[in-house]
Design a binder for these strands. Structure first.
Lengths: 153, 153
DNA sequence: TCCATATAGTACTAAACTAGTCCTAGTTTA
DNA sequence: TAAACTAGGACTAGTTTAGTACTATATGGA
């Protein structure tokens, strides 16, 4: 359940690598070597991350990639959006009319609420945490917000 | 992102139908007719739900299906487990040795924690809520637990 | 100016997964 | 024993995902 694709996982690995040395400019080949991910895949993912504004790129000789923002300002939700797009939790939600009776769509709406709540919490998780770069993870605990408020369901 | 499969969605629709009349015994054909889902699909899903103990079945003439427990005691997590199995959020987590360097696996572990936290909150959501059968949804609000405790990441 | 080294974008292929259907076996009751 | 059910598995078509290849574009140094 709640799977993320391999490519999204790879992208996180790449971003984590960039986050570890925020000032260094990495070529796709370097990242490939240092993460042991296939070079074409790394290239493809970096292009996609660039298109969504998560990394900065420089072309030409001595070109390469750089994190667009500090790792603490990149959320897990942004990474998922860049890689997987705004995919809904159920397919029925977009074209609900042709297959659903009333009770069906009620169910779909509930799943949507679950999805929305999960998204909101993913916005709270930063690349810094995903990459394991937080010095004291417990310090942010007081900012914790309930992911799913059951009353809203 | 965070998709559930069509079949899981259908299963929820079926369970919601059963939950609406907890004492009535439904045949697969009746559920198919009343939910407008294809009969073979409904059959297949009911068998799967039975195998995981979510519904009771009676064979033979006048047989059919019945919710195994009150809707309030069936969680969204149980439904997902029955339909999609204990799938991890990342594939790498199960066989991490052949493709990952140290930083890679750190990332995978973080995703696992996210997954676990999401699961825990899905355990709090009942079929009653998914089916929209709660009289006063706001009444359960005080039981709300944080889905993702950022300190645990 | 030309060439080596980068990224940008797109198109294509193979593999895996999902959804849906069908068939046969087993169970119960009239 | 026949009719009305569920149980289980196998099979197929369609879609999605992962991975690769190719061409175009940009930069900087010899």
């Amino acid at each position: 359940m709640l799977r993320i694709s391999k490519l999204t996982d790879y992208a996180t690995v790449i971003l984590a690598r960039l986050a570890a040395q925020p000032e260094r400019r990495f070529t796709a080949a370097q990242i490939s070597a240092e993460t042991r991910l296939a070079a074409p895949t790394v290239s493809k993912l970096l292009k996609q991350l660039h298109r969504h504004g998560l990394v900065l790129s420089t072309r030409g000789l001595h070109g390469g990639y750089l994190l667009a923002r500090p790792a603490g300002e990149i959320s897990a939700a942004q990474i998922l959006d860049a890689l997987e797009g705004p995919v809904a939790i159920t397919e029925c939600a977009s074209s609900a009319s042709h297959c659903c009776i009333e009770s069906t769509c009620l169910v779909s709406k509930s799943w949507q609420r679950v999805n929305f709540a999960v998204r909101r919490s993913l916005q709270e998780i930063t690349l810094l945490e995903l990459a394991g770069l937080t010095a004291s993870p417990a310090s942010s605990e007081r900012h914790t917000a309930p992911l799913i408020q059951r009353g809203s369901l």
